[in-house]
Design a protein around this nucleic acid. Structure first.
Lengths: 188, 188
DNA sequence: GTCTATAGCTTGATAGAC
DNA sequence: GTCTATCAAGCTATAGAC
């Protein structure tokens, strides 16, 4: 732990990118090694649990990011609409305006047998609840707030899939722009 | 070609399911063999190009389905809203109400180097154009019709991702129910 | 903490019997 | 047209030097 923290963070960033781009099965140790500059054995030294542990750590880290940047705005000052806009801006940065995929998408392949299913489920639930809270605080009835939060997650995820599939990030950016209205607006 | 056509169709159905559930890299020949009941070598007899050809055929077949069930309603009788509802119903069946993932999602991992990138892009473009046409026919200005069609694709794909991730298909079904209003409504 | 070397298994793919 | 047997290459993972 005498190592500079930036080192560890950089490493996790690189690993994250590979899992985002290729999913779990596509993230071979060769790719992970190449992306990090560390040999396979060095990766095993840091992650004795191997590839599965890497994905777990990377996913938990992303979930932590989510809590810090999506849940946090709840306790910050400002109108709900402004806070949602801030969240949208941070999401845009995180996903590089749609150039990166979401781990909750790429690590959820394989269905029931996936070792990450429960983690993905929890992360999505947390995300939805946080957005539902903002929406509720904005004055919307509980049920509608929750519905809108689910729709928001649907649109974010769909925007990323469409961006990856078409190469055009336009629709994803429109989703982000529209988030304040969707979650906190009274006309939508 | 003396074989009953049902055989070939069944085979392609099974292959499709594996690619939907596991993506390209996760669809190992073991899984494809197990799912079809054919040994590896038999699969190679039918698909000399191997796994990549299997995915290509499966993807082209899905694109064909799309043309027949999404483009076709354009030329059928009925109000645009009704025809969109019919498309939504067919999509619900195709994706088993959200229990199945979309090939355009699962085969688009890997980014630029993916051998299916152009196919996925074309399929998504076709899909959007078809929906934009219905929307335009419903009386919406060209630009808005196209925007709504893109949003529709975003919501369909997002609904499937969220269904896979959360295990709850509620949000996806809501997307389908809402499609007629989104594409042909004057209030959304 | 990183490396080289290697083990053992699974992968995608082929040859040839039936 | 399907199979068994087999191949080389890639995979995940480990051992041990430095």
């Amino acid at each position: 732990m005498a190592r500079p923290k930036i080192h560890e963070d950089d490493l996790l960033d690189r690993l994250t990118e590979v899992f985002q781009a290729h999913g779990y099965e596509g993230a071979s140790l060769s790719r992970l090694s190449k992306a990090t500059g560390l040999e396979r054995a060095s990766l095993y030294h840091r992650f004795p649990g191997g590839k599965e542990e890497m994905a777990r750590v990377v996913l938990d880290r992303a979930a932590g990011w989510l809590v810090r940047h999506v849940l946090a705005p709840l306790r910050e000052p400002g109108r709900p609409e402004e806070r949602v806009a801030r969240m949208a801006g941070l999401l845009g940065e995180y996903y590089l305006q749609g150039r990166r995929s979401c781990l909750l998408d790429t690590l959820s392949l394989g269905g029931e047998d996936s070792p990450f299913q429960s983690r993905v489920r929890e992360a999505m639930a947390t995300w939805v609840e946080a957005m539902a809270s903002i929406s509720s605080e904005a004055g919307l009835p509980r049920e509608e707030a929750r519905r809108r939060a689910e729709d928001a997650l649907v649109q974010i995820q769909g925007g990323l899939v469409v961006a990856r599939g078409t190469g055009s990030r336009e629709a994803f950016l429109r989703v982000l722009d529209d988030l304040p209205r969707l979650l906190a607006g009274t006309d939508g």
